[in-house]
């Protein structure tokens, strides 16, 4: 198929209910800038849905981050995300502007939206990529873990736009000001006769935002099955408080009711990349390690010296959490 898609890279800018743009957008933007260079300096553009007047608040950020064009849809209805409205309007935008690549954050929202867009465009979508590159043929080479992280697969796409999602915290934000004169293009909201068949009737904001806390944590202490019970997690919390860490958990610990689902790290939970990750009573099942193996330094405490967690830890301490941590807290 000849590539008539040459309007660069389009990124979905997810805006939450409070009006903040999700950090995964800035992470994708940084990576997209790198890809754009490899494609010979193509544009990096964004699409965002806003309430009326809201776009002004974002203009400076988009320019400073080096976004070439921002396509925005303005409507009262866009305070909340809507699968039906957003996918329909983005599909129209893509058909008209023909980006070569489209990137979406693999948040709950992005994972809901991206497959509807790729499906309607009959194009390919690679989920949860950990690496994005341009190959020798100028194609997007999207690398992702598969089979619980045991294997990495590099996936290519035969159609355009080549679409990919990336989890938060996989790529880094570029802190350097990258100012460009951004072009802001308002798009018509063509939703005549369409009514969203999903209606939000109630919303309860996360009281304690464990999700964001884990996302930005410099130190994380996480507990698994080896912490056995509530007392184990209480001890973990005391340990966390003492060293200024956030608390994470494995899926098993969440299923045992020892930690909230929002604290879950791994394949079915969050991906985290703190400076120090301390795994306590965690065996190191691949489903968990996939979410934390890119932490800068991993310390593991486990009384089973054959636990697989020691294979991926920088510092492995073979010992009993229930003996070591109380002693640590005494000092």
């Amino acid at each position: 198929m000849p590539n008539e898609n040459n309007s660069g890279i389009l990124i979905y800018a997810q805006k939450n209910r409070d009006g903040y743009i999700h950090t995964v957008f800035f992470e994708l933007l940084n990576k997209a800038k790198e890809l754009a260079q490899k494609l010979g300096g193509v544009d990096v553009n964004a699409v965002i849905f806003t309430s009326p007047g809201q776009i002004d608040g974002y203009k400076e950020a988009f320019s400073n981050m080096g976004v070439n064009k921002v396509f925005y849809f303005e409507d009262e209805r866009f305070k909340n995300y809507s699968t039906e409205y957003y996918s329909k309007l983005i599909v129209e935008l893509v058909k008209e502007t023909r980006p070569e690549i489209m990137l979406v954050g693999a948040t709950n929202e992005g994972r809901d939206l991206a497959p509807r867009i790729s499906g309607a465009l009959a194009t390919g979508l690679t989920a949860d990529c950990t690496g994005l590159d341009i190959n020798e043929n100028g194609q997007l080479a999207a690398t992702r873990p598969t089979f619980g992280g045991q294997l990495m697969a590099t996936i290519l796409c035969k159609t355009y736009p080549q679409m990919a999602t990336v989890r938060p915290n996989v790529f880094k934000v570029n802190p350097v000001n990258n100012y460009v004169q951004t072009e802001f293009i308002q798009r018509a909201v063509t939703l005549n006769g369409i009514n969203d068949r999903v209606e939000i009737i109630e919303f309860k904001k996360n009281v304690q935002n464990v999700i964001n806390e884990l996302d930005s944590a410099e130190i994380i202490v996480a507990g698994g099955r080896g912490l056995k019970n509530e007392a184990g997690f209480k001890l973990l919390k005391q340990f966390a408080d003492k060293i200024g860490a956030s608390v994470g958990a494995t899926r098993v610990a969440v299923e045992m009711g020892l930690a909230p689902q929002s604290a879950q790290i791994g394949q079915t939970g969050k991906t985290v990349t703190p400076r120090i990750y301390i795994a306590c009573g965690i065996s190191g099942a691949i489903q968990h390690t996939i979410g934390m193996e890119n932490s800068a330094h991993i310390i593991a405490i486990n009384n089973d010296e054959n636990a697989p967690i020691f294979d991926i830890a920088d510092t492995g301490i073979v010992g009993d959490f229930f003996e070591i941590i109380p002693e640590f807290l005494k000092e």
């Binding site: 390919g124 690679t126 080479a141 294997l151 990495m152 697969a153 830890a313 070591i324």
Partner: peptide, 23 residues
């Protein structure tokens, strides 16, 4: 529309030092 161009094993880049000591 998508296909796997290559598959490879995921290698850890941590240096796996293990210590077995007293408390």
């Amino acid at each position: 529309p998508t296909y796997v161009s290559k598959a490879f094993r995921n290698q850890s880049n941590h240096n796996a030092q293990k210590f077995k000591m007293n408390v």
